[in-house]
């Protein structure tokens, strides 16, 4: 029932991703937004506050702040403080390298602010191969600092076929820092397109992951792995692609896309400098289409109710078109196994 309610879109996003800068001091090989240098025309603080006013008016429940590296913006705390003041949950994703005693004290003073530190492996070799030399050591320092100040903390790992081997160790590492473990799915977006073939988990790993997630319900996924629910009972989450329906993405320059993994012209819904965000959310043709969209090729699948066709971004970037099943679909073999 929830699928039908959500598929047609909500009055406002449940949450949205707002990439507040393209600036980043790292150069991760799988970066979904291909970040590096700040853009000249990134939204100003005033524009950012105006946007937060709109989110508050629309009752967006929380925003995921990403980039780029959010802490690279000199006015980061102005934005964060205004969001908290407006009652909007503020979840910031950081590589941790720019955090200091002083900045973490400021974070601690902001109720409703959650911090997620990216770590793409449990050891230096695995992590730094993706995130760059020295990034592991700095991320660990940040985790220790954040823990010391009792910050609401999670560690996010974009799961690859290499970090997959470290699932249990990642889980333990997060516990050590009093953090939640969050696992995200690798998408072939941004620089991730070039690394997809090399990094995406194997089918066997994905199958194993499904059962591992069932055994570890406290691990959060941001609904990344709902496509695996074809293997059995549904994993925690909405169980569907929320692009343009329950979520969307705003880039540093105010462009609105259906999802942070769908940053292509086909999925551009508007720009907040030209139209109010609420109007874009309600009326943009792209979002209207997505609210009618169903993966045609999956309609006859007996397990359609489990994943509703999977991730649109993964399908679009791997197959080059809409309407195709998720490239990591596990349903066909699963069906064979069930009927054997």
């Amino acid at each position: 029932m929830n699928y039908e309610l959500l598929r047609q879109g909500l009055e406002a996003p449940i949450c949205l991703t707002w990439e507040i800068t393209y600036g980043c001091n790292l150069h991760c090989t799988h970066c979904l937004s291909s970040s590096g240098k700040r853009a000249d025309n990134e939204l100003s603080l005033e524009e950012s506050k105006h946007l937060l006013d709109e989110f508050a008016e629309m009752q967006v429940f929380y925003i995921n702040i990403g980039g780029g590296e959010p802490f690279i913006r000199p006015d980061f705390f102005n934005i964060a403080e205004y969001s908290v003041q407006k009652g909007i949950g503020f979840h910031v994703s950081t590589n941790g390298t720019l955090l200091s005693e002083k900045s973490v004290r400021r974070i601690a003073a902001l109720p409703g602010l959650r911090v997620q530190v990216s770590l793409d492996g449990v050891d230096e070799a695995t992590n730094d191969a993706i995130r760059g030399r020295g990034s592991y050591r700095k991320a660990m320092q940040a985790l220790a600092l954040l823990q010391r100040h009792s910050i609401d903390l999670s560690i996010n790992c974009v799961l690859t076929r290499f970090s997959f081997l470290q699932l249990d160790a990642l889980y333990e590492l997060a516990r050590t820092y009093g953090a939640r473990l969050r696992l995200s799915r690798l998408r072939p977006s941004g620089r991730g397109k070039e690394r997809w073939d090399l990094l995406h988990p194997t089918r066997e790993q994905n199958v194993h992951l499904y059962y591992w997630l069932r055994e570890h319900p406290e691990v959060v996924t941001g609904d990344s792995f709902f496509f695996l629910s074809a293997l059995g009972p549904q994993l925690d989450g909405l169980g569907m692609c929320g692009a343009g329906r329950v979520t969307c993405c705003i880039t540093p320059t105010g462009d609105v896309y259906a999802c942070p993994f769908l940053l292509s012209p086909q999925f551009w819904a508007g720009n907040v400098r030209e139209q109010p965000f609420s109007v874009i959310w309600r009326d943009s043709p792209v979002f209207q289409q997505l609210r009618q969209y169903e993966v045609e090729a999956c309609q006859s699948c007996l397990l359609f109710h489990s994943c509703h066709g999977g991730c649109i971004a993964a399908s679009f970037y791997v197959t080059g078109a809409l309407g195709n099943p998720d490239p990591e679909c596990v349903a066909i073999t699963s069906l064979n196994e069930r009927t054997a």
Partner: peptide, 12 residues
Amino acid sequence: RRERFGALLYEW
């Protein structure tokens, strides 16, 4: 938050 189908409750 009010929605067409009633409302959504989010427990943060």
